[in-house]
């Protein structure tokens, strides 16, 4: 009997330790999330509506009849398609470089990781000046250093270049974190494998293809999912640098969700866009994960 009671109390102890965290998450994460989900299925203009009125899927249906939403969706997909492969390639390439035993890699590591600690809102202002049509350093270098004045652009003001400029800023900010994740994967690969391969006469390229990359699968999965989420939830640099303009050329899903909620006061539609975006990120991440898992089998 005493043994049974002790076993039950042992069972409770871990739950008691977890209780504060569970309560915290429930109050500040789960409850707001469920509340927001409920509002996404409601007609709720927080100025003119007394309370949210359940309207089923009407907000979600309305999204697909809203040309501004469609443009924002397309822009977000475009950003993701350009950002994601570049993010993966650059992160991997730089991680491989930093993993070599060359003098001075510590300095390069610090330099590449520095953007992580700079808030994107501040970096956005800096890049606004860098990309400025008339005073920007990019145009200055093109015209006066490289003597290619015909390549000068209004980088943030031209429909063709605005979104790509935002991708550049996103890469500047996030590649450092991708490098950290890949570097940790690279450090985890046993030196013995490379030693054995060396004995077998394997060259550097074969090392990369047959040893390094296959052993980085879990890192690919982790960096990939992280990169996809960062791309789909792009917001900060858009707000600071273009505010969705010119026109709707850089309007993205989270910006449009924010506008609906806090500028048009249409909280129901705003929440619907936010949940749609979150669902999009989850679906793409799960798909990405499945691809890597199936390859593993």
């Amino acid at each position: 009997m005493a043994k049974h009671v002790r076993r039950r109390s042992n069972y409770r102890v871990p739950w008691l330790f977890a209780l504060p965290a569970v309560l915290y998450m429930g109050a500040f994460l789960l409850y707001p999330l469920l509340s927001a989900l409920r509002i996404s299925f409601s007609e709720y203009n927080f100025v003119y509506s007394e309370k949210p009125i359940f309207n089923g899927l009407a907000n979600y249906v309305q999204l697909f009849n809203d040309p501004h939403f469609i443009v924002s969706f397309k822009n977000t997909v475009y950003y993701t398609l350009v950002f994601f492969p570049l993010f993966m390639l650059l992160s991997l390439f730089l991680a491989l470089l930093l993993n070599t035993k060359i003098k001075g890699t510590n300095i390069f590591q610090a330099a590449i990781l520095l953007p992580i600690v700079v808030p994107l809102s501040l970096a956005g202002i800096m890049f606004t000046w860098i990309f400025s049509q008339d005073f920007g350093i990019v145009n200055h270098i093109l015209a006066n250093v490289l003597h290619l004045p015909h390549l000068q652009r209004f980088w943030l003001g031209d429909v063709e270049t605005a979104m790509n400029s935002l991708v550049v800023v996103g890469l500047w900010k996030y590649v450092g974190f991708g490098i950290i994740l890949f570097l940790s994967g690279l450090k985890a690969i046993s030196e013995d494998i490379y030693e054995a391969a060396k004995v077998d006469g394997v060259n550097a390229w074969q090392n990369l293809i047959y040893i390094t990359l296959p052993n980085l699968k879990s890192s690919f999965s982790l960096v990939g999912i992280w990169g996809i989420i960062q791309a789909i939830k792009v917001y900060d640099q858009v707000v600071v640098m273009t505010n969705g303009g010119p026109g709707t050329a850089t309007s993205v899903l989270y910006l449009y969700a924010w506008k609906n909620a806090f500028t048009f006061f249409n909280m129901g539609l705003g929440e619907a866009i936010a949940f749609f975006t979150a669902a999009l990120a989850i679906v793409v991440s799960v798909f990405f994960n499945l691809v890597f898992k199936s390859e593993k089998r």
Binding site: H68, V159, P246, G247, T248, F264
Partner: peptide
Amino acid sequence: TVDHAKMVDIMTAEIHNMLKMQ
């Protein structure tokens, strides 16, 4: 007006598109 902010958003986007010769 009730939908002032929405109107401004539409005007801005359309006038920008025009200024970009679209």
